[in-house]
Design a protein around this nucleic acid. Structure first.
Lengths: 167, 167
DNA sequence: AAGTTTGTACAGTGTAAACTGTACGTAAAA
DNA sequence: TTTTACGTACAGTTTACACTGTACAAACTT
């Protein structure tokens, strides 16, 4: 019962931690890959990762690329080692929260802008409408304003998080 | 150029808004369905939604069900109308942020607990290890503590958002 | 130089999920 | 009661995507 080998425990940790990584919109395999890299603090080669993850080298290759793109892993160089080496970024909180918050802020503000554009168009075209259309236009207008307010709130909240979070 | 019919504009709004809804981990079709329901403030039947979404009635049926489960839509009743009627919840910010925040808080605390369990086990089993294993166990232990700290931070941030957001 | 080793592009495969149409149970209308 | 209308269960189909193996290019070794 208490006869748990370290490898089992390590595996358990990886599985648990991968779940959290997945919450940041990272697909299961890549999440697990990150967890593996993180547990094994020392840089790993493609073959090692392939082995640890139980997936083909090709698969790991694309996985690690997206992790690098997301700034969650990086390639490191070590004298005398021919293979590429990758390691997970150490600072979990900063990396994950940063990308997370920015993702939201960017999306919210972009969407808000689009909606504001639409709002303008509705205003400009208003008098080209027939009477019945005007009524409908007013309803749309009201909805758009609600949506803009919603996006505005989203922006605010995430800006707030951004400022309150410890660097 | 400025000859945009209201229907086109409405469609544009729906498309934009659906993108935002998708960010709350809702699949594209369901996001669009919600957007449609929201724009059309008045309750809609399955057939109307099917028509507006361009998907089969069966598909809409399952879609609306998950929206209802997520508390984002509800079935309403109207005298003399035989078909089921559904409407989107009005309060965008409250509904979306609430579920969003709770999802994170729940996940973070659950994961943290799991990791704490593992941490305990590592401690308890420590002296059953050989010398070389002890070294490895220490590394694992260090990593687990980092992860727990990470989850703790996540919990804190989202609790903070929860308290600062306007009800 | 030829011969290895390593990373990656690409085409094909397997699989899970979204979607559809049919078929049926239940409730309303006749 | 019979007939019609509606919602949904279910099986089959399509689509999207993760994954694999092969094949090749670039870099290293000899």
């Amino acid at each position: 019962m208490s006869e748990n080998h370290l490898e089992d425990i390590s595996n358990l940790i990886i599985t648990e931690f991968a779940k959290t990584v997945e919450m940041f919109d990272i697909n299961p395999s890549e999440a697990r890959l990150f967890a593996i890299l993180y547990i094994e603090g020392t840089p790993m080669t493609l073959d090692e990762m392939s082995d640890a993850l139980g997936k083909s080298k090709t698969s790991v290759n694309t996985g690690i690329r997206t992790l690098v793109d997301l700034n969650l892993a990086e390639r490191v160089w070590r004298k005398g080692v021919r293979k590429d080496l990758y390691k997970a970024d150490e600072n979990l909180y900063r990396k994950f929260m940063n990308s997370f918050i920015h993702k939201w802020i960017d999306a919210a503000s972009r969407q808000k802008s689009s909606l504001i554009e639409i709002e303008k168009k509705l205003q400009e075209d208003f008098f080209n409408n027939t009477e019945t259309e005007k009524e409908e236009a007013n309803i749309l207008y009201k909805r758009v304003k609600e949506m803009i307010a919603f996006h505005h709130s989203l922006e605010s909240v995430f800006h707030e998080i951004k400022s309150t979070k410890k660097t």
